[in-house]
Design a protein around this nucleic acid. Structure first.
Length: 631
DNA sequence: CATTTTAAT
DNA sequence: CTGCATTAAAATG
C-alpha cells in the first residue's frame, strides 16, 4: 500500500511506523493469541486498524498509554542495567530455592481438561441461521464479542470495534447479541460435561475446567479417549464444536486447548521433561495471566518464551515484583493449580455495574445517570444478597481516562437510595476537581461485602465445605445446589460434611452478632448525623477484617466498641462485648457527650473528608490535571 | 505503613 | 471501541 505514495510521504510513513509500531501492536487487541489468525497478514491488518482509528479519542488514549508503557519499560531497562553491575548471587540463589521448592510440590497425579467452545456465540447463531455458515459475520454491535472463522480470515477478532472490523471486511455481517440463547445453549453443554466431572468449574459462559482423573479411572479409559468421547457427545447433542486441552494442571490445560483450535484437542503428557520442553519455547503471551503489557515488558528485558525466564531469574523479582516473580517461576516450570471447583464456591468479593453512554457533562443529567446506576446496582445486590461496606464510583472521561473514588459509608449499603446518596458526594467532588468534566461511562461497585443470606434455609444450612475453601463465611455458601446433584451425593466422598449441632448453634450466634453489629452501625450513623448536621460521614466500628468473616480464620478481632484487639474465641469475644456495652453504651455516648464511643476511630476516606480537598487531583501543578482537556 | 487509586487481565 | 470481576502495583499521606 505504501507503493502508491510519493517518495517523501513514504519517508514520513516509515517514521510513523517506527514511532508507532508498538502502538500498532497494541491496537491489534488483547486476543491476538486467539486462533483463526494464523494465515492473516498481521502487518497489513495492523496498518488498517491504525488508519481506521487514527485521530479518534480512543486512539489518542491508546497512544498516551503506549507512551507511558514505553517510559515504564525504559525505567525497567535502566533498573536492569543497574542490577547487572551488582552481585546478584543471593537473588539467583533465592530463585533457585524457589524453583527447588516448587519442583518438590509438583503434582502430576491429576488429569485436568480445559474445554472451550469454538466461536461460541457465532456458532449458536449459525445453528439458527445456517446460511451464515458461508459468510463472514460477527456477534455484538459496537464491539465484536466474537466472530466466525470466515471473519477471522480478514483479521476480525473479538474485542475489536465494529467499524474497524468493517474496514477489514466490508461484507461483514454484524448480529446483535442474544444472551439468553447463549446461556441456554451453554447449559446444554454443561449437562454433558457434568457427567465427566460433577464438580467441573465454569470459567466463563463457554469455558470450563474438568478434573477427569476419577472418570478415567472409573471407566478404565485413557484421558485422550475420554475427551474425544466428550467432544463427540457434545457435538452430537448440542451441535457445538469444542476444543480441549489435557494436562497435569489448569494452566497447562488452558494453553493446550488453544493448540488445536477449532474442534481439536491436545494432550500434554504428565511428564516433567515433556512439560519443561513444552514451556521452553512457549511465547510468554500464551500463558493466561500474561497480556500485551506484561508481554512487552518481559520482551524488553529479553524474556520471549517461558524457557527464557530461567536465564533472567535473578532479575525478575526486583524488576517486576515478588508476585510476578513467583508467577513467572511457575510459568517456567509449567506449574499450575490442580484443583477444580464449581465457580459458585468461590467467594464473591464485589458486585458492580457500569454503562457507557453518549458524552455527558450536565450535572443534572449526570445525577440522573448516577441514580439509574444505583438502581441497577440495587438489583444486583438484591439478587446476590449482599451489602457492601465500601462503595466505589467509577467514571470514564470522554478522553477514555478512567477514575475511581471510594468511600466507606457508615453502614453496609445495598438500597438504591443509600447507594445514590453516598455516591453523590464522590461525584460532586470529582466535578469540583475536574470542572466541566464530560463522562462516557459511569459505574458503581460494592466491595467488602456482607452477606444477607440468612442461614435459615435447608438449602445450605446443614452443609459446610470441609476443605479450607472460601466458604467458611457462613453467608456465602452457594445458593444454587439444585443443579449440582453431585453436591448432595458426594457427602460420603469426604467433600462435604454435616455441620455438628454445635457449629449450627455457633452459626446462629454469629448471625445474631452480625445483626448486632449492624445495629451499632446504624446507631453510630445517628450519632454522626447529630454531630455533623447530617453533612458528613463517619466511619463505622468495624472489626479489622470484616464482621462477616469467620473469626476462626483471623487471629483476632477488634472490639467494635473499644477497638482493642480481642481473642477470637467466641465466648470470650462475646463476653467482652457485653462488658463493653454495659460500661459505655452507644446511646449514652449520644446523649452525654455527643461523641462516638470509639476511642480510636477508623480513618476517614479522603473522598468524604474536608482535608481531602487538596489531594493530588485538585492540585494545580498536577501533571494529571494538565493532561486532561475538557471542552 | 495502611489505605486509595490505577492498571492489567 | 463493552461490561464484570479480580488482583497487584503504584501513589498517597
Amino acid at each position: 500500500m505504501t507503493g502508491e505514495r510519493p517518495a517523501d510521504e513514504n519517508v514520513v510513513a516509515a517514521l510513523e511506523v517506527d514511532l508507532h509500531d508498538t502502538l500498532k501492536y497494541s491496537l491489534l487487541g488483547p486476543s491476538l493469541t486467539k486462533s483463526g489468525q494464523d494465515n492473516v497478514d498481521q502487518t497489513k491488518v495492523s496498518e488498517i486498524i491504525y488508519n481506521a482509528s487514527k485521530g479518534s479519542k480512543f486512539f489518542n488514549h491508546e497512544e498516551y498509554r503506549d507512551k507511558n508503557l514505553t517510559q515504564k519499560i525504559e525505567r525497567i531497562l535502566g533498573k536492569k542495567k543497574q542490577l547487572e553491575k551488582l552481585d546478584l548471587a543471593s537473588d539467583r540463589r533465592k530463585a533457585d530455592d524457589c524453583i527447588a521448592e516448587l519442583e518438590l510440590a509438583r503434582d502430576l497425579s491429576q488429569t485436568l481438561v480445559h474445554i472451550d467452545c469454538d466461536a461460541f456465540y457465532a456458532a449458536v447463531e449459525e445453528l439458527d441461521r445456517p446460511e451464515l455458515k458461508d459468510v463472514p459475520f460477527s456477534v455484538g454491535k459496537g464491539v465484536l464479542t466474537t466472530c466466525n472463522y470466515h471473519a477471522r480470515k480478514f483479521g476480525c477478532r473479538s474485542g475489536m470495534a465494529g467499524f474497524v472490523a468493517k474496514k477489514l471486511c466490508p461484507q461483514l455481517i454484524q448480529l446483535p447479541l442474544n444472551f439468553d440463547k447463549y446461556t441456554s445453549k451453554a447449559q446444554e453443554v454443561r449437562e454433558i460435561i457434568v457427567e465427566y466431572d460433577p464438580r467441573f468449574e465454569s470459567a466463563s459462559i463457554d469455558e470450563a475446567y474438568l478434573n477427569i482423573t476419577g472418570y478415567c479411572e472409573k471407566h478404565d479409559i485413557s484421558a485422550e479417549d475420554a475427551v474425544q468421547q466428550l467432544r463427540r457427545e457434545v457435538h452430537e447433542k448440542t451441535k457445538i464444536t469444542i476444543s480441549a486441552g489435557i494436562a497435569a494442571n489448569a494452566k497447562l490445560a488452558k494453553i493446550c486447548s488453544n493448540q488445536n483450535k477449532p474442534n481439536g484437542q491436545f494432550l500434554l503428557p504428565s511428564d516433567r521433561n515433556a512439560i519443561m520442553a513444552f514451556m521452553s519455547d512457549l511465547p510468554t503471551r500464551k500463558v493466561n495471566g500474561i497480556g500485551r503489557v506484561f508481554e512487552r515488558e518481559l520482551d524488553a528485558v529479553g524474556v520471549k518464551t517461558c524457557g527464557d525466564i530461567y536465564a533472567y531469574r535473578q532479575y525478575l523479582s526486583k524488576l517486576f515484583g515478588e508476585k510476578s516473580f513467583f508467577f513467572l517461576m511457575q510459568c517456567y516450570l509449567g506449574l499450575g493449580r490442580t484443583n477444580v471447583q464449581p465457580a459458585e464456591e468461590y467467594e464473591r468479593k464485589s458486585v458492580g455495574t457500569e454503562s457507557t453512554f453518549r458524552d455527558m457533562n450536565d450535572p443534572v443529567e449526570l445525577r440522573d445517570k448516577l441514580r439509574a446506576t444505583a438502581e441497577e446496582l440495587e438489583k444486583d445486590m438484591l439478587r446476590t444478597k449482599f451489602k457492601g461496606r465500601t462503595l466505589v464510583l467509577k467514571i470514564k472521561l470522554h478522553t477514555y481516562e478512567v477514575l475511581t473514588r471510594q468511600i466507606i459509608p457508615p453502614k453496609a449499603v445495598y438500597l438504591k437510595e443509600d447507594l445514590y446518596n453516598f455516591a453523590v458526594p464522590m461525584l460532586a467532588k470529582l466535578e469540583q476537581d475536574f470542572p466541566g468534566m464530560r463522562l462516557r461511562l459511569m459505574g458503581l461497585r460494592c466491595t467488602h461485602l456482607v452477606s444477607m443470606k440468612k442461614p435459615d434455609t435447608m438449602s445450605f444450612f446443614g452443609f459446610k465445605r470441609k476443605a479450607t475453601g472460601p466458604l467458611d463465611t457462613g453467608g456465602s455458601v452457594p445458593s444454587s445446589p439444585q443443579k449440582r446433584k453431585a453436591d448432595a451425593l458426594s457427602t460420603d466422598e469426604g467433600q462435604w460434611e454435616q455441620w455438628p449441632d454445635e457449629l449450627l448453634f455457633e452459626e446462629a450466634e454469629r448471625q445474631e452478632r452480625e445483626d448486632e453489629l449492624q445495629e451499632l452501625e446504624t446507631l453510630s450513623q445517628e450519632i454522626d448525623k447529630r454531630r455533623h448536621h447530617g453533612k458528613e460521614v463517619v466511619p463505622n466500628p468495624t472489626p479489622k477484617k470484616g464482621a462477616a468473616e469467620d473469626p476462626t480464620e483471623d487471629e483476632w478481632w477488634d472490639c467494635p466498641i473499644c477497638m482493642r484487639p480481642q481473642a477470637t474465641d467466641e465466648k470470650a469475644f462475646n463476653g467482652h462485648i457485653d462488658l463493653c456495652l454495659s460500661r459505655q453504651t452507644i446511646k449514652d455516648a449520644v446523649q452525654e457527650t455527643g461523641e462516638t464511643p470509639t476511642t480510636k476511630p477508623l480513618k476517614r476516606p479522603s473522598t468524604a473528608s474536608e482535608k481531602g480537598k487538596n489531594n493530588r487531583s485538585g492540585a494545580g501543578g498536577d501533571p494529571k490535571q494538565k493532561r486532561l482537556c475538557f471542552g
